[in-house]
Design a protein around this nucleic acid. Structure first.
Length: 532
RNA sequence: GGCGGGUUGGCGGAGAGGUUACGCAGCGGAUUGCAAAUCCGUGAAGACCGGUUCGAUUCCGGUACCCGCCUCCA
């Protein structure tokens, strides 16, 4: 069995991963507060811990891993959003959850086993808080219930700070009713305008932190294996979760391995609205950057290092994935990924190393392993590769006409009739098919870009040579294929748009013509074939 | 002020106390009837100052700079 090693923030060490129960490995990831589209930073933990989920399923068995990722759908940010827009809170959270699913699905993240909503667990939170009060770890003050950090000696251990240190340089909110400035709210009163639930302390709502403690307890038990999230959650969120959970369930130990991913930057700077480099996953998807490409970029940086999102990385990733998809088009994945690949992932999720190995397999032409590895990290999946098909990279043979014409071309080339072969190639390219001739064989697939390259360079060359008619012919060809382009005194303009429907129509018409021509060529070749 | 992370060749980005990371770009070459592509080779690094060591980019200490958290934040 693959030995997984993970860096545990709690011990600051890379440790062998030993689950409490190999038949039910349990992990919890802090999910989003649902009031807005997920931004690029939100998506990083989702993707990297999705790889962990996949690895655990691979090692322990698909049915032996329970993965919980919550939705925090009660929070003052949501209330503020509702107040600002006049919308119903439930509308906002429902819509945001649907968006979240759309966007994370696009990134190839598997849905967790459970996606609990905080508002469905208010009762569990109240029970937990009652327990904390009963054990003397929490106290009621002015309608609030507060956690007493001094009652938990290990408070600060996860983040490596002591209560006294924190207070020293701190700008903590010193509410007069707090026994200690670091005490945090478990329950707070709601006025009539705010969402609220009846509780022993009056109508109110939970504070931040308690929802994760309650939900992880309900779904995973008092002790479970992995708790993950962004490093920014280390303090105070995770620290407070530990304090609550360990005090509510003494001796349980709560989560055993704490994993934290480093933060995301954009072009070397912190992502922020004021710098104008703030964007959501949806923004990138809408720009036409496929989710699979975004995922690849995430995986190319180790999760415990700061990651920089750049347009350049996306371009490189897209190129690599194009190549890989092409290589894998006709193969089935090998039964299991190579050991070295699993070892890379098992070594604290070394995804950059894993991708390097995939490059190696691609270079070796080892498509079966490449594909198997891809599936293990959520790449090259049929559902994710849709963008590849959407770009009309259809495999050889998928359109039987391309296959037929290509066969005729191969025979023509074998017979030394390059004139006939070239004629057919031209027809293919003008139809919108990319053609690559190799020694005896040839491959071809539908690809608008091939026509674009061919006609655009043709138009430019003709224009420079002063042949306006030829330039016009090339431009017209492009137009007929759905490319928006104009021709004026300065020559051909840049492409300003692409109409896919128009292209498909163009493709169909030209393909029929090319097929007829191929049949004619075949007749020409026939006698020679018989003579030989 | 406290806590934590980072600093690798033109760019991205790993591992390993001593041996080529790898990818992109560059350069050189091969191959190809043409187009497109493909293939091979190759230079280049580890912020700075000390220490440990036969030997450190890799371990230890310090300095500088960058980033994050300490207040809602993935």
């Amino acid at each position: 069995m693959t030995d997984i090693r993970l860096t545990n923030t709690r011990t600051r060490k890379k440790e062998p991963f030993v689950p409490l129960d190999p038949a039910n490995v349990r992990m919890y990831l802090c999910g989003p507060t649902v009031y807005d589209r997920a931004h690029m930073g939100n998506a990083r933990p989702v993707v990297v811990f999705d790889v962990l989920f996949r690895l655990l399923r691979h090692v322990y068995g698909t049915d032996h891993v329970t993965y919980v990722r919550n939705f925090t759908d009660v929070d003052d940010k949501i209330n503020a959003r509702a107040a600002a827009t006049g919308r119903d809170i439930r509308d906002i959270t429902e819509e945001t959850i649907a968006w979240y699913h759309e966007d994370m699905d696009a990134l190839g993240a598997l849905r967790p086993t459970h996606e609990p909503r905080a508002t469905d667990y208010i009762g569990a939170m109240i029970t937990m808080i009652e327990g904390l009060v009963a054990r003397g770890h929490a106290y009621v003050a002015e309608g609030h219930v507060l956690f007493d950090v001094r009652s938990y000696p290990d408070y600060g251990r996860l983040s490596g700070r002591s209560v006294d240190d924190m207070i020293a340089g701190a700008r903590v909110e010193v509410a007069p009713f707090k026994r200690d400035p670091m005490d945090f709210v478990l329950w707070k009163p709601s006025d009539a305008d705010l969402p609220g639930w009846d509780s022993p302390w009056g109508r109110g709502r939970p504070g931040w932190h308690i929802e994760c403690s309650a939900m992880s307890h309900e779904l995973l038990g008092a002790a479970f294996d992995i708790h993950a999230g962004g490093i920014d959650l280390q303090f105070p969120h995770h620290e407070n979760e530990i304090a609550q959970s360990c005090c509510a369930h003494p001796g349980s130990g709560f989560a055993r391995y704490w994993l934290h991913n480093e933060m995301l930057q954009v072009e070397g700077k912190k992502m922020s609205k004021s710098l104008g480099n703030f964007f959501t996953v949806r923004d990138l998807l809408d720009q036409g950057i496929p989710g699979e490409v975004i995922r690849f970029v995430y995986l190319q940086t180790h999760y415990r290092k700061p990651m920089d999102w750049t347009a350049e990385k996306a371009r490189e990733a897209e190129k690599t994935l194009q190549k890989w998809h092409y290589i894998c088009m006709t193969v089935r994945p090998s039964r299991s990924a190579p050991t070295e690949f699993l070892d890379a992932l098992a070594d604290d999720l070394n995804t950059p190393q894993a991708l390097t190995l995939m490059r190696k397999y691609a270079k070796q032409g080892n498509a079966a392993d490449l594909l198997a590895c891809g599936h293990l990290v959520g790449l090259l999946e049929p559902s994710m590769g849709l963008w590849f098909d959407r770009n009309d990279h259809l495999k050889l043979g998928e359109d039987p006409r391309i296959f037929e014409i290509t066969s005729v071309r191969e025979r023509a080339r074998a017979a030394g009739r390059f004139d006939l072969s070239d004629k057919l190639r031209k027809l293919l390219i003008e139809s919108g098919v990319a053609v690559f001739d190799h020694k005896p064989t040839s491959r071809a697939f539908k690809e608008p870009d091939a026509l674009l390259r061919y006609a655009l360079s043709g138009a430019n060359k003709a224009w420079e040579a002063g042949d306006k008619l030829a330039a016009e012919a090339s431009v017209n060809l492009l137009r007929s294929a759905g490319f928006q382009i104009s021709l004026d005194e300065d020559g051909p303009s840049a492409i300003t748009g692409f109409d896919e429907v128009k292209f498909d129509k163009h493709y169909e018409e030209h393909m029929e013509k090319a097929l007829l021509e191929a049949q004619r060529v075949e007749e020409t070749l026939e006698p020679e074939a018989d003579d030989t």
